[in-house]
Design a protein around this nucleic acid. Sequence first.
DNA 1: CTTATTGCGGATAAAAATTATCCATGATAA
DNA 2: TTATCATGGATAATTTTTATCCGCAATAAG
Lengths: 184, 184
Amino acid sequence: MIKHIHEFEINTMKLGEGVEAAIHCAAMLAGVEGNSTLAGAAMAEAFGLSPSYLLKHLNMLSAARILESVSGPAGGYRLARPAERISLLDIVLAVEGREPAFRCGEIRRNGPVRLDASAYVKPCGINAAMLKAERAYRAALAEAKLSDIVATYAAEGDPRSLAASCAFVERHQRPQKSSSTKQA
Amino acid sequence: MIKHIHEFEINTMKLGEGVEAAIHCAAMLAGVEGNSTLAGAAMAEAFGLSPSYLLKHLNMLSAARILESVSGPAGGYRLARPAERISLLDIVLAVEGREPAFRCGEIRRNGPVRLDASAYVKPCGINAAMLKAERAYRAALAEAKLSDIVATYAAEGDPRSLAASCAFVERHQRPQKSSSTKQA
DNA sequence: CTTATTGCGGATAAAAATTATCCATGATAA
DNA sequence: TTATCATGGATAATTTTTATCCGCAATAAG
């Protein structure tokens, strides 16, 4: 392994790659018409992702009621509600889980001197500060709606990639039978 | 390993355990007097951590100029600057690295249709939204100073654990020769 | 009713990151 | 000189993430 002068350690607070995939898929699904669906395999192709693994993430989104799925031929996924009511936080929590990034291990208790448990009823101040920061993070993600992402993309994105994306959706979306807006 | 009825997947955006250790150590170091130091092994004992691994994290803090280290017997670590000028963000970035949690893999380019690179000069809107949220996170962490943590602990923490912590520091801190406030 | 397509879930495997240990080295106080 | 301690590299153990596969249920179409 080549070590340059000072090859930096890249151990970072990290979001799984599934989040990126999930958001892109959701944004793409925001472009399908009516109650049509897009197959998971089609989206995997669109982003050059492993189909079988992407399905895992899409499944999380289904479980979280962000997407709806339709089995069978002509089946696939669609948004479970309007893009205006889906936030990036919804997606991140669905894919990455609802636990905070900072988990207090209560290591303050692990020293050689064992105090009574009652000495630790007050929450750890460090934990409190970290969770407060994470609330700010989540609040910002909650503000970001999928519809904003799509609108910004349409308004500011490059026309070529927008056209390619729309063409892809047009080509792969599949109309459904049940004609009303939707049903659980 | 026991699997209960529906053992939840706990895949979460995660901060390494080293962060918790690092913050606790820094908070403890805020309690040492003058330019005295605390040995890494002592802090590992205080929190029931693996000494050799904790040293790695303390080393990161040294490299980031958050801590100073003194070699030799009676050596150890101390804060490199007053606790008022050390934020939780400083510590988190030192230990976890400076990369954002969300790394845009530009998967929008990976589809079957390859557009010219010029179609992607505009940054990905998803990436922008995620980074904006992370800025909010970091801003909150930057507000949280180590001195606040310590002060809150002194004011609101349980007297017993406070006393135990102070006693530990008293017992293990080691005065240094160079008598002025400090020197790099 | 049969067939083909698709999502779902479990089992499992491969790859990568995290956590942890060990040892050689240099610094330094006693 | 000796003992203590931080440093850094090498390496191992463990856990998490990523990925694949297969059988199953649902369902549209013939």
